[in-house]
Design a binder for these strands. Structure first.
Lengths: 133, 133
DNA sequence: AGTCTGCGATTACATCTGTAGGCCAATCGA
DNA sequence: TCGATTGGCCTACAGATGTAATCGCAGACT
């Protein structure tokens, strides 16, 4: 954690919906951003209006996933929830919910679906070696 | 992306909610079951009423995740959606949505969280060997 | 100073989800 | 045969989510 972003051990991290996640993604790539800038990043691909983005931003503020800082007359938005924490949490949730907390069966399913690329396999081998050390 | 037709016959795999999933689990363990039997399996742990289970069952029928067969005056419910297909689909969704379709970063996250047991690691090594052949 | 304009806040509304109650037909026990 | 029970179906309703329009204010422009 080179970064000062607190991982903030608040009791219950409020769930982030799929639409909200798209907004988070933009902010994880670059931040802080204004609402309009976020819209530039996501409105084309999802076919949203600026109003929609604003709603999502304020919901994310409520959920304390992002924070605002005043910049003159408007706000800049930046993530509070770290991308890593979110990804880790979601991954964990899936594994717990569907695979009894075991990662191996998940891996097996992905393999069965041929969802693993050669690069994945190579990377994971490296990873596993690391873990055994 | 060669999206292609899914393994199943139906064109659009309707999303199954978390509560509905609990019902599916019971039916994947044993089927066909009556509504009351499903309730016996899940009502204690989730603190549901029979009415709730019935609602979930009918929603699952609508979503074509399960099917009914008449048994005298009542119905027996059995899964149409295979557990494997569901798990595979959900895993795939997560990987696609959060990790750009790459499995390796998912495992990196799980590893970082220490969500991998020794058994997982061993199993995955075996699996990887299989895959390299 | 007065208007225009861009911005966050407020409000709206349809759908989905969680959770359940009530209605009505069929069936079983007496 | 007739009521009690069981079971599916329809209805309900609050909260979350997707999607957006509108309101009111603080600066910018003239």
């Amino acid at each position: 954690m080179t970064d000062g972003a607190n991982t903030m051990a608040d009791g219950k991290p409020e769930r982030i919906s799929e639409a909200e996640y798209a907004v988070m993604e933009a902010l994880w790539v670059r931040s802080p951003l204004t609402a309009a800038e976020v819209c530039e990043e996501v409105c084309q691909s999802r076919d949203w209006s600026l109003a929609t983005v604003k709603t999502l931003l304020s919901r994310l503020v409520t959920k304390q996933a992002i924070a605002t800082e005043p910049d003159g007359r408007r706000f800049l938005y930046r993530p509070v929830l770290a991308r890593t924490d979110y990804l880790g949490g979601e991954s964990r949730r899936l594994v717990d919910r569907l695979f009894g907390g075991r990662a191996a069966p998940l891996f097996a399913h992905l393999a069965e679906q041929e969802a693993l690329t050669d690069a994945d396999i190579a990377e994971m081998e490296t990873l596993l070696k690391e873990l055994r050390k």
